[in-house]
Amino acid sequence: MDVLGIIFSALFANNFILAQFKGICPFLGVSQKPGSALGMGLAVTAVMVITCAVTYPIYTFVLVPLGIKYLYIIVFILVIASLVQMLEMILKKFTPGLYSSLGIYLPLVTTNCAILGVAQLVTAEVAATSAHFAKTLVVFGKAVKISMAMSFGEAVLSGLFYGLGFTLAIILLAGLRQKVDRLNVAKPMRGFPMTMITACFMAMAFYIFSLIG
């Protein structure tokens, strides 16, 4: 459980947006103001932690033993969508303050490649020798070998830090866009093209981390 390695790679080397290209739609859409960017980032982080905590056990103890791994897309997405809807209602009821700053982004979070992306990354299977979590379960008389690349603790931890990496990138872009959106550039370059070019420079910066990491 190399914690430092996970933290460094999740935040910088394999940053969820700039290195793995997942979760770009909110990255471009919600980063007009740092305030809304922070709200979106924290909402994504919260949902990522819950997703990892829920989808990891479902995959290892339900889908793999029963041999229905092909259902993983539909089960994950159903669970994520419902969890987000529940989270939204709970937040609205018990913490309206938090809801007003975080809650409005939750429906945005479900249709977001980042969440299913992290669910896929976390439930990666690997050859038995280098598995961090290996077990054999006897199901309906058949012994089924499970060998997962990450243990449960690592899964939740990497979910958390992938979320924080996401938040880091989106806040950086929001900060940059404060200035960039007001540059006096040619009319067609305004808006998304300029944001893309800012993101391009950020990707270059983060690429260096992947060389060290």
Binding site: G5, A124, V126, A127, S130
Partner: peptide, 28 residues
Amino acid sequence: QVLSVKKSTDGAYILEAVSSNIGFSNGT
């Protein structure tokens, strides 16, 4: 790690090997 080896009648070998986890996001 070498996972499996097969030999063809004409002497050629087919091996299935997996790398140690130094791939992208230390996958294999």
